[in-house]
């Protein structure tokens, strides 16, 4: 038998299954309506909040832009956010007025935009107990993306909270921090809308996190 201390520590642990791109047909599996497939009994999609949910109803929209400046029209997006009181609602249940988890996609038909119907998230504390500014965690999957890219969307009208947010401040470059701030727009129907464009590469490249 081998001496336990002669075994490299990595051998004491399994290696993670390796990641592969979600590919061009990710919608078949995770966004059936986009692929043109009939829905099943329940689907996970972009309406995270019903009108009954606590908090300010908002729409979040955005496009995804590649290193050539072109729209990426086949991404798949996952969102994870706290409710209006700053609590994550982990128990996914479509009968509840709010779910912390949502999915969306950019398509040719949507003009290359993804969108979420949700409420503005409340403040959640960082690991050290300091408050983090309201934010939505986003993961971007697509053909050509070998492993999902994780980012965070913050709100332009939370300047004070943003300035004090320990995670935003973990991004050293001020100009790069700005890539994480969504712009507020009023839409024609009076709804509050935030726009968050994600740039995968090159000028104005969005900050992506490892955690």
């Amino acid at each position: 038998m081998k001496q336990p201390n002669s075994t490299p520590t990595t051998d004491l642990m399994l290696r993670e299954t390796a990641s592969q791109t979600a590919g061009p047909y990710v919608h078949i599996g995770l966004a059936l309506s986009i692929a043109g497939l009939p829905p099943r009994q329940e689907e996970i999609w972009s309406r995270m909040a019903t009108p009954e949910a606590d908090g300010q109803p908002i729409e979040v929209v955005g496009s995804v832009i590649d290193g050539n400046g072109d729209l990426v029209r086949d991404t798949f997006i996952e969102a994870w956010q706290a409710d209006a009181h700053g609590e994550y609602q982990c128990d996914f249940d479509l009968e509840k007025p709010f779910n912390s988890f949502g999915r969306s996609a950019t398509t040719v038909e949507s003009g290359g935009e993804w969108s979420l119907t949700t409420v503005k998230p409340g403040i959640v504390n960082a690991a050290n107990g300091k408050p983090m500014a309201p934010h939505i965690n986003l993961a971007v999957f697509a053909r050509g993306i070998n492993m999902q890219l994780n980012t965070r969307m913050y709100f332009e009208d939370e300047a004070e909270a943003n300035a004090a947010c320990p995670i935003l401040n973990a991004v050293e470059s001020e100009s790069r921090r700005r890539t994480l701030i969504a712009r507020r727009e009023e839409s024609e129907d009076g709804k509050v809308r935030y726009r968050f464009d994600i740039r995968l590469r090159g000028e104005g490249e969005t900050v992506f996190f490892d955690f």
């Binding site: 996970i44 590649d66 982990c90 128990d91 996914f92 988890f101 959640v124 960082a126 697509a142 090159g202």
Partner: peptide, 27 residues
């Protein structure tokens, strides 16, 4: 054209935003 050119920003102390996740037992 779809790969970031900048390094990922490492979060030294992941928060509840990173270590929590959805439970689909009621789907």
């Amino acid at each position: 054209a779809r790969s970031p050119s900048q390094p990922l920003v490492s979060l030294q102390s992941p928060s509840i935003s990173e270590v929590s996740g959805p439970d689909f037992q009621h789907l």
